[in-house]
Computed example of a mutant assay.
Amino acid sequence: MDSRPQRLREARIAKGFETAAAAADAFGWNRNTYASNENGNAAFSYRRAKEYAAAFGVRPEWLYDSAGPMRPTAEPGYVPIIGRVGANPDGVVLFATGQDAGDLAPIPPGGTDKAVALRVVGHSMRGIADDGALIYFEDQRTPPTPDMLGHVVVVEVDTDEVLVKRLLRGSRGGLFDLESVAGPTRHDARLRWAAHITAIIPPYQARRIIRGVA
C-alpha cells in the first residue's frame, strides 16, 4: 500500500465493511466526505486519520503516513514513539517520520497505557531536550488546564498541527500564546487539547531503551 486513500480502503475492508457507505453509516460519518477521503478526491487530516484508525482498529501513524505496523502493538509495558519533534525551530511534531517511526519505548514511571513518546531531532530544543532524547506525554486529548500555563507542553491547534511549546495566556479567554524554545511566539492560538510532558529521557538512555518494531 503506497497511498493514504488505499490504506484507508484496506483498513475498512479488513474491519469487515464491504462498502464505504456501510462504514460511514456504521460510524455516523458523512457518506460523501468519507467516500471522497477513500477515493482520494479529498485529503484528510491527521486528526481525521485518528478517528478512522480508532474505528477500524489500526494505528493512525500507519494510516496517515505508512509508518510502522498496521495494527497497534500488544507488547505489554511499551508505548509507541509516534513522531519526531525539534527538527525545525517551530516546534512542530512530525508524525511518524524517519526510521524510528513505529518504534516502542518503555512506559515511563507514573505513566499509563495512554502514554506516547516523541523523539527529539536536532538542537532547536536545547535546554529542554537534546538531540535523540525522548519526550513522553499522556495522549488523552483534554483541554488545557491552568496548571499548564508557563510550562512547555504538547498541544494541538485548530490547524491540525501538534506542537511542543511553552503555554501562555492569550489576549482573551480561550486563546493562548505558544512560545517556542527557538523561533517566534505564536499568538492567540486556539487549542483542541494540551498535555503535560510527563518524562524526558536523555539521549544516551533513550538509545538503550528504544525497541524497534520489525
Rank of each mutant, 00 (worst) to 15 (best):
Asn32Pro: 11
Gly57Phe: 02
Gly77His: 07
Val85Thr: 04
Ala20Thr: 12
Ser66His: 12
Ala35Met: 13
Val93Pro: 03
His123Leu: 11
Ala74Leu: 14
Gly40Ile: 09
Ser66Ala: 15
Ala24Gly: 04
Ala67Leu: 03
Asp100Cys: 09
Ala101Tyr: 03
Pro108Phe: 06
Ala115Tyr: 11
Ala87Pro: 07
Asn88Leu: 14
Ala20Lys: 08
Ala49Pro: 04
Val92Met: 13
Gly77Phe: 05
Ala101Thr: 10
Ala24Met: 07
Gly83Glu: 00
Met70Gly: 06
Asp103Val: 08
Thr112Gln: 01
Ala35Tyr: 11
Val120Trp: 02
Asp103Tyr: 08
Ala74Val: 14
Ala117Asn: 03
Pro109Tyr: 09
Asp65Asn: 15
Ala22Tyr: 06
Glu75Trp: 13
Glu51Tyr: 09
Thr33Leu: 15
Pro108Arg: 04
Ile82Met: 01
Ile81Gln: 03
Asn39Cys: 09
Pro109Cys: 09
Ile107Asp: 03
Gly122Gln: 00
Ser36Trp: 09
Leu63Ser: 03
Gly77Ile: 08
Glu61His: 03
Thr97Gly: 11
Ala53Ile: 02
Pro60Asp: 08
Ala54Pro: 10
Tyr78Ala: 13
Ile82Trp: 03
Leu63Glu: 01
Pro106Ala: 10
Tyr78Pro: 12
Thr112Tyr: 00
Val121Asp: 02
Gly68Arg: 00
Asn39Met: 04
Ala87Tyr: 05
Arg84Trp: 11
Arg48Glu: 15
Val116Trp: 06
Leu118Phe: 08
Glu75Gly: 13
Ala23Tyr: 12
Val93Gln: 03
Pro80Thr: 06
Thr97Pro: 06
Val85Glu: 00
Asn37Val: 13
Tyr52Pro: 07
Arg59Phe: 07
Arg48Leu: 14
Pro106Cys: 03
Lys114Gly: 14
Lys50Glu: 15
Met70Asn: 07
Trp62Asn: 00
Asp65Val: 10
Gly57Glu: 04
Glu61Phe: 01
Gly57Thr: 02
Ala101Leu: 07
Ala115Pro: 15
Tyr64Ser: 10
Thr73Pro: 06
Ala115Glu: 15
Ala42Val: 14
Gly40Ser: 04
Tyr34Leu: 11
Val93Ile: 05
Gly77Tyr: 08
Lys50Phe: 10
Val85Trp: 01
Ala54Ser: 07
Asn41Ile: 10
Asp100Ala: 13
Ala22Cys: 09
Glu38Cys: 07
Phe95Ala: 11
Asp100Trp: 13
Ala42Glu: 15
Val79Gly: 10
Leu104Ala: 10
Asp103Ser: 13
Ala54Asn: 06
Leu118Asn: 02
Pro72Thr: 03
Gly110Ser: 01
Asp65Gln: 15
Ala117Arg: 04
Gly111His: 08
Arg119Ile: 14
Glu51Lys: 11
Arg59Thr: 13
Ile107Gly: 02
Met70Arg: 14
Val58Asp: 00
Pro80Ala: 08
Ala96Cys: 04
